[in-house]
């Protein structure tokens, strides 16, 4: 018990230390590294949003970039000359639009299990990308520009605030509330969760909408930050792929896993770009990360620091079992 309390205090101190360093970062590093840190915070937040459904509920969403893209396009379109909505006001509008899409898509697809759900969500993102390519109001393949606001510190703090809020929300809802118990129960055994009175359809939909809305916030900030988006840059499948690998590497279904995986892989990405001027090699790194996790790190990097009393199983086992249809639990 004393050791647990000691570990808790050590963890809290570490967290406060990291937050202080992050808050002071703009005065500690130059604009280039501040931009890298802004990206790292975005990916940590996006990976966390994917983990809400993929890690906590066990539903692998291969179309999560769709919600990032909806948020990005909502901000880009609303800030354009036609509407001239202030940036901060575009974020909640993007969230509402995203939530509506998530309900319409989630209600039927969340009835699907395992690989069928993964395929359906992947198809949804592809459809949205094609749609954004052919319609006029998105700028089509040519993309859409936003009013430039060249203030690195603003975007750093915007991503910082969004990431902190995302992790706080995740901790509160998934680690410290009965909602989190329901979500994890349905991940581990859906029929048993239903037998405990849990309306799993509703809980899954709530989780899906929440994860989508969080992704849309990062999409909104991203669009304003980079001042130009096109369908590929915000709906592309590679965006979801990266989130998935970041979560797997950091620790599926854990609170801090997505942060560890997101920051680590994004820094690797930037280092490769710095030294080679190209990120093709990064794809190989992603593949290697998956192999590493599957063979040696089922609980991810975060699992190395977690106190484990036992010997068997991991969230990865449960989720992959469901995805591949090789487990009884939770699939019937």
């Amino acid at each position: 018990m004393a050791q647990t309390m000691k570990n808790r205090w050590a963890g809290l101190l570490l967290l406060v230390g990291i937050l202080v360093v992050l808050a002071l970062l703009p005065v500690l590093v130059n604009n280039y590294w501040l931009r890298v840190a802004t990206g790292a915070l975005m990916w940590a937040g996006l990976a966390c949003s994917w983990n809400m459904l993929g890690g906590y509920a066990g539903y692998i969403n291969f179309g999560h970039s769709a919600f990032f893209g909806i948020g990005a396009y909502a901000t880009a379109i609303l800030m354009g000359a036609d509407f001239a909505v202030p940036f901060l006001a575009t974020i909640p509008i993007g969230m509402i639009v995203t939530a509506l899409f998530a309900v319409v898509i989630g209600a039927p697809t969340l009835r699907l299990r395992g690989a069928y759900f993964a395929i359906a969500t992947w198809a949804f993102a592809e459809v949205l990308m094609q749609f954004a390519t052919v319609v006029d109001f998105t700028g089509g393949t040519g993309g859409i520009g936003l009013p430039p606001f060249l203030n690195e510190r603003f975007f750093y703090f915007a991503m910082f605030a969004a990431a902190v809020l995302t992790y706080f929300l995740t901790w509160l809802l998934f680690e410290r509330s009965r909602f989190g118990l329901k979500v994890k129960a349905l991940r581990d055994h859906e029929p048993a969760a239903e037998a405990m009175g849990i309306n799993t359809s509703l809980v899954k939909l709530q989780t899906f909408v929440l994860s989508a809305v969080v992704a849309s916030v990062f999409g909104s900030i991203f669009a304003y930050w980079v001042t130009f988006i096109n369908p590929k840059s915000v709906f592309g499948g590679d965006i979801t792929d990266q989130m998935v690998v970041m979560v797997l590497l950091g620790g599926l279904g854990s609170l801090w896993g997505p942060a560890i995986g997101g920051v680590a892989l994004f820094f690797v990405n930037r280092l490769i770009w710095m030294y080679y001027g190209d990120t093709a090699f990064y794809i190989a790194i992603l593949g290697a990360a998956i192999i590493l996790v599957v063979l040696f790190l089922p609980n991810g990097i975060a699992g190395l620091f977690a106190r484990r009393s036992g010997k068997s199983g991991s969230v990865l086992d449960t989720v992959l079992g469901r995805l591949l249809g090789s487990r009884q639990g939770g699939r019937s």
């Binding site: 009965r178 909602f179 118990l181 329901k182 994890k184 129960a185 991940r187 581990d188 055994h189 029929p191 048993a192 969760a193 037998a195 405990m196 009175g197 849990i198 309306n199 279904g253 199983g313 991991s314 969230v315 449960t318 009884q328 639990g329």
Partner: peptide
């Protein structure tokens, strides 16, 4: 065949059973 919430703790399983209602 026991249908436990396998990744949750023993206490977590009991609390999850009471989470609804």
């Amino acid at each position: 065949i026991p249908a436990l919430f396998e990744n949750m703790t023993v206490s977590g399983n009991l609390l999850a059973a009471a989470a609804e209602g």
